[in-house]
Design a protein around this nucleic acid. Structure first.
Length: 445
RNA sequence: CGGGGCGUAGCGCAGCCUGGUAGCGCAUCUGCUUUGGGAGCAGAGGGCCGGAGGUUCGAAUCCUCUCGCCCCGACCA
């Protein structure tokens, strides 16, 4: 993409409403525009990152054997009356009447609807286990939306639901979700710590929240620093191997890690003092086991091996897709702007032409653009007639992890400059070397 | 939902107290110069001052109502 043809409305000054780094930077980098309180338009750069996050979530879900579908944003009130949540959910649920006076709602979550789908078609244990998920916009009418996409009213969420014959099978699904979530966050360049949590209004018996450590997090968290050393990295995970899943889950849930809701000073005191940490965290996901809470009232039953009709055991699992943009920026930025992890960056490399209109520089930039694209990578070429400072400032702000700088001095010597956004380190090399280096960097992403 | 604040050009703000028909910086457009970290000079365009009522000869400014947004708290993915 050439910047002169793109739509990237960056702001030099910080809009007054933005309080925290991620909100400020998303507005300045031209990623989002507020439409009304807690509701945003996604501008091209923001949409690219949102789609990248979505893609990673999808890939990891499908890898775990979970099946995608898509349910509507608007739901009828009847199902929610059946589960008893129409009245229980409260003012946070946006209720709407259609022209016939039918009561509708903009879904804050989808347990009822997925259970209805399940009960309509599945009646035998032979069809289990089954996990269905979708990535869809949700609406929760927060009293006080704030912090940009971190706490919007409209938000994009992956929510998945597992259906299993009994408690033991549902626990395998629980472990499978835990592992797939750990992989998902790692691919986004995030360290998300599973913490024992409260079940809240969704209702549940066993639940973990995934927290990203950040100063601006909404929750106070207490943890054993040993958990920071755990990495899945290239570990081969077999999602059909229940014992392996359980062992990974156990590995990540053994070190103490809890939010203030479930924090226990007594247990925390047993952690060696030098490893005891208190911090703040942003919640980016949660997994629940809630048994037959919805299958019983909604009549989601299957026949077991003995021919008895039993309610299925369920769990639900969420990843805050739109909120993750905020969380990633909170965890990865500096005073000049965003620093995208390679896994989610909107463009793989920025090309800065320091002397637009100079034949040699223009030709070199076009060549780099073509070679980068030939490697399957997407460049953003700043071909505007701007001064060096302005181009650098824009690249730093929008946070592409790598930059190739092309100037008349270097070109005369057959060299360009490859710069890391994260470290600021630059190295001179030929165009071919730079392209090869980039291809190697992104090979793992 | 309680408490506080703010709506003036695309963005950031001044003007309001003490009424006289709107201004600054950045951005935008034109020209010249400049060209490795948000350039300089000269010129230009752009605002029914959130909306509605009222007071007044006259309202961005005073009064009433209303809509929107933000902050602190409670709540929440």
């Amino acid at each position: 993409m050439r910047l002169s043809r793109y739509f990237l409305p960056v702001l030099k000054e910080t809009p007054a409403e933005a309080q925290i780094a991620s909100h400020r930077l998303m507005l300045r980098a031209g990623m989002i525009k507020q439409a009304s309180a807690g509701i945003y338009s996604w501008l091209p750069l923001g949409l690219k990152v949102l789609r990248n996050i979505e893609r990673i979530v999808n890939e990891e879900q499908e890898r775990a054997g979970h099946v995608p579908l898509l349910m509507p944003t608007l739901q009828g009130a009847d199902l929610w009356r059946e589960s008893g949540r129409y009245d229980a959910y409260g003012e946070e649920m946006l209720r709407i009447k259609d022209r016939q006076g039918r009561e509708m709602l903009y879904g804050p979550t989808n347990e009822e609807m997925i259970t209805d789908i399940f009960r309509s078609y599945v009646s035998s244990y032979k069809d289990l286990p089954l996990t269905l998920y979708h990535i869809q916009w949700k609406f929760r009418d927060e009293m006080r939306p704030r912090f940009g996409v971190m706490r919007g009213r409209e938000f994009l969420m992956k929510d998945g639901y597992n259906f299993d014959l009994d408690y033991e099978a549902a626990m395998v699904a629980y472990d499978r979700h835990m592992v797939s979530y750990l992989r998902t966050y790692e691919r986004m360049g995030l360290q998300a710590i599973p913490m024992r949590a409260d079940s809240g209004p969704i209702g549940g018996e066993d639940t973990h929240e995934f927290l990203v450590l950040a100063e601006t997090g909404e929750s106070e968290v207490f943890y054993d620093s040993a958990i920071l050393d755990l990495k899945l990295a290239d570990r081969a995970v077999d999602y059909d191997d229940a014992a392996q899943l359980a062992s990974i889950r156990s590995e990540w849930t053994t070190p103490y890690a809890r939010t203030d809701e479930t924090h226990d000073e007594g247990v925390f005191a047993e952690v060696p003092e030098e490893r005891r940490r208190t911090s703040r965290g942003i919640e980016v996901g949660q997994i629940f086991y809630f048994g037959t809470k919805y299958s019983e009232p909604l009549g989601a039953m299957v026949a077991n091996e003995k021919g008895e009709r039993v309610p299925v055991h369920m769990g639900s699992h969420g990843i805050g897709v739109s909120r993750l943009l905020g969380a990633i920026i909170e965890a990865s930025h500096d005073d000049k702007g965003i620093i995208w992890p390679e896994g989610v960056t909107p463009f793989h490399v920025g090309i800065v032409n320091l002397r637009q209109g100079d034949a040699a520089c223009d030709a070199a930039c076009a060549e780099i653009e073509a070679q980068v694209a030939a490697k399957g990578l997407e460049p953003l070429y700043d071909d505007r007639d701007e001064r060096a400072g302005a181009k650098f400032a824009t690249m730093d702000l929008i946070g592409l992890p790598w930059r190739i700088t092309v100037g008349p001095r270097g070109i005369a010597a057959g060299k360009v400059e490859l710069t890391s956004r994260r470290t600021g380190e630059s190295e001179e090399m030929t165009v071919e070397e730079a392209v090869t280096r980039l291809a190697a960097i992104y090979a793992g992403h």
